[in-house]
Design a protein around this nucleic acid. Structure first.
Lengths: 169, 169
DNA sequence: CGAATCTTTCAATAACAAATGAAAAATCCA
DNA sequence: TGGATTTTTCATTTGTTATTGAAAGATTCG
């Protein structure tokens, strides 16, 4: 067996079935939020880890590169999905997954969804003005659509806080 | 002015301010669902259109290619976000946007979110089995995490139908 | 300090996804 | 039916995002 093939075999076998399940699951979920695979790998591994892991261990177990591990951990730290723990006598940072899964959902809502809804509401105001200053009937249909959109956005903005609260619970 | 520059100027000026607002808004929202820009362009244009539009008109107004228009319309049709209307004496298909914006949200939930949640629940079952057949304490922490995940997924599955109902309202 | 260790950054590359447009397929009248 | 029109498909090109790894930057410890 070639050195390379051996290395890749090693890589695969260094993950338990449990870890593989967890990693695949989080890759799938985090893809919904538009996050790269490497982030799912890191979080999935940490999620079922019995103890804190250093970056080097994460790299070794998953086979990802230095840069991917560093950047992925940075992102996860920023979102509060992962944190470092103090390990007496250890030089390397050690990471554990936050168990609060709601963080992913709520950060998506707050950082992606809500800003877009707010932008959309400003757009709608502008669109309504444009409709008024249009030569007579700029169209009955568009006007109704815009009304509907406004209504729907209002409703959305109302349900979001409730949803966030529910998820955090 | 070069022929190309002229063409691109034409392209831009053939959209009203209203249409541009609408298009940009839907590009932004549909990106959340992982849909390509061209789809947002088509839907945004149709959304504020006073009447049905044929594919050729959509291409001409937005400047997108034949293939992109055809595929985008196909996708939107499949999701029920757009439909053809009968136009007496017209050969080309003519499209209108469905005003039901909830379709986007509900189809995302039903086609993306729920399937993943179901897969995750199967994974969790397997993971629980693995934990049991692990040498004594495969870890207190992982076991708790898996419990928590199960709890969270259950909760998610419960809130989703409610949310869908609310959105459709 | 200063050498060793660990982490971040970022330019280059690889992997992936979207857009294009020519060719094929389907549809429609005369 | 047959020619013209319209739509779909799909191989290729283009554009975007993720990953890599070397170099720079921090940090820690003796």
């Amino acid at each position: 067996m070639s050195v390379l093939a051996e290395a890749s075999r090693q890589k695969a076998s260094s993950l338990s079935d449990l870890e593989v399940e967890s990693i695949e699951m989080f890759i799938n979920f985090l893809r919904l939020l538009g996050w790269p695979k490497s982030v799912g790998e890191i979080y999935g591994l940490l999620f079922v880890s019995a103890g804190p892991l250093a970056m080097g261990e994460i790299m070794a177990r998953t086979g990802m590169s230095l840069g991917a591990a560093s950047q992925g951990l940075k992102l996860l730290r920023e979102f509060g999905a992962v944190r470092t723990v103090y390990m007496p006598g250890a030089r390397k940072d050690h990471y554990v997954a936050s168990g609060e899964l709601s963080r992913f959902a709520t950060s998506y809502i707050e950082e992606e969804l809500l800003p877009r809804m707010r932008t959309a509401q400003e757009r709608i105001k502008r669109m309504e003005k444009m409709m008024q200053s249009l030569p007579e009937s700029g169209g009955q249909l568009p006007a109704e659509r815009i009304d509907r959109l406004k209504y729907w956005l209002d409703k959305g903005q109302k349900v979001v806080p409730w949803l966030v609260k529910f998820l955090k619970l």
